[in-house]
Design a protein around this nucleic acid. Sequence first.
DNA 1: TTTATTTTTTAGATTTGCCTAAAAATAAAT
DNA 2: ATTTATTTTTAGGCAAATCTAAAAAATAAA
Lengths: 221, 221
Amino acid sequence: MAPNLSVAEENYIKSIYHLQQSYESVNTNALADHLKTRPASITDMLKKLQSKGLVQYNPYKGFKLSRDGNKAALIIIRRHRLWEVFLVDQLRFSWEEVHEVAEELEHVRSKKLIDKLDAFLGHPKFDPHGDPIPDSNGKISVRQQLPLSELPLNKQAVITSVQNQSTELLSFLTSQHIMIGTRLEVKRKLPFDNSIEIKFKNRQSLNISEQVANAIQVNPL
Amino acid sequence: MAPNLSVAEENYIKSIYHLQQSYESVNTNALADHLKTRPASITDMLKKLQSKGLVQYNPYKGFKLSRDGNKAALIIIRRHRLWEVFLVDQLRFSWEEVHEVAEELEHVRSKKLIDKLDAFLGHPKFDPHGDPIPDSNGKISVRQQLPLSELPLNKQAVITSVQNQSTELLSFLTSQHIMIGTRLEVKRKLPFDNSIEIKFKNRQSLNISEQVANAIQVNPL
DNA sequence: TTTATTTTTTAGATTTGCCTAAAAATAAAT
DNA sequence: ATTTATTTTTAGGCAAATCTAAAAAATAAA
């Protein structure tokens, strides 16, 4: 029943899943962009995924994951995020280094391995970037969170995740001692560039661009 | 300088390495057999490995790993055996289950990952089957060992490794409480089938076939 | 509502790794 | 030393996943 997917197929499924978080239905160019490949390749692969029942594909219209496709995506994401926890918590990688290694580890297909890893790590609910880890049934804990850019002034909050996975952003944040669990509040919003001024306990305040404020997700206290 | 090898190339290199342990120079059919593929495929791939400078290949004569090929093989074997230690010591896999999972994990290419894993595991020198783990420079500890079939009568010895990787053999041994570190001596050799009778401390003795006795390596005390 | 632009798909090639069947080289047997 | 058998290589093809260039469809603009 669980079809054995190639690495390429897994990557397509995973990308479609991620794009669906923001767009509901995904189009060819966006996926080509995300996978750093060409639109023609997308069309080819989508026909295959369609025939395997993993996506609903309307030529020229767009596509979304089927129920099975969604299930498959959650398995891959579970693997990825559990490996990230392992790399950071056990092997002492820093959080900005783990993504590309986890990209490879996520394709090792052994349910037993992942379930044992999960137990070994103490069934973590969130990965080092604060993203939720699907359990072995594909259930994901949701957590009330909003982008830092939308946090009301002077409201205490905790950073719960960072959306953008680029090494540049993550090491900038690390250099500023900004990480998952950091407490902060917004002191000012500057309308001309939408940048914001944030303040940590016992630390001087810091100005952050709109883009960065959008990538940081917080949980108001 | 360190060429990026495909999974297929890595598997060829690794198989040639293993076959070279017993035969010095390897021939096409033996490798085809070992890799469960066809001789024609071997010829194809060997031309490629030759052109990458990883093997010395004499058409119709046989082939062996070059210095670079040997280096590459040791890296792959290091990965494989470290993952086996992780699976058994940390994730509590039994030693007969780990081989096929490690076959996949060994192809994750990140030097940093492996060196950190090595440190995390406490720089183990041997894997759960007793095989030596190359260090990050490719050095392997050697250990005086001989097949159980060649151990003299009534000489105490410790099991140091088990050569045959088949699940059947490994679970048979496990069921008889025979594992790395087990002490034993040979009580009788039966000439008509070359089976041997072995004796453990405080346990009744056991008869073992020639094939099994060949797969078990021991270190005489 | 035509025309222009953008998006998507088709057509045809390429690379990697494998295959079968046939030919060539080597080794073994008479 | 021939013939026979075995081993290895070549020749030609196939499937997966990619690509470029061109055609077709959908969308936006004039």
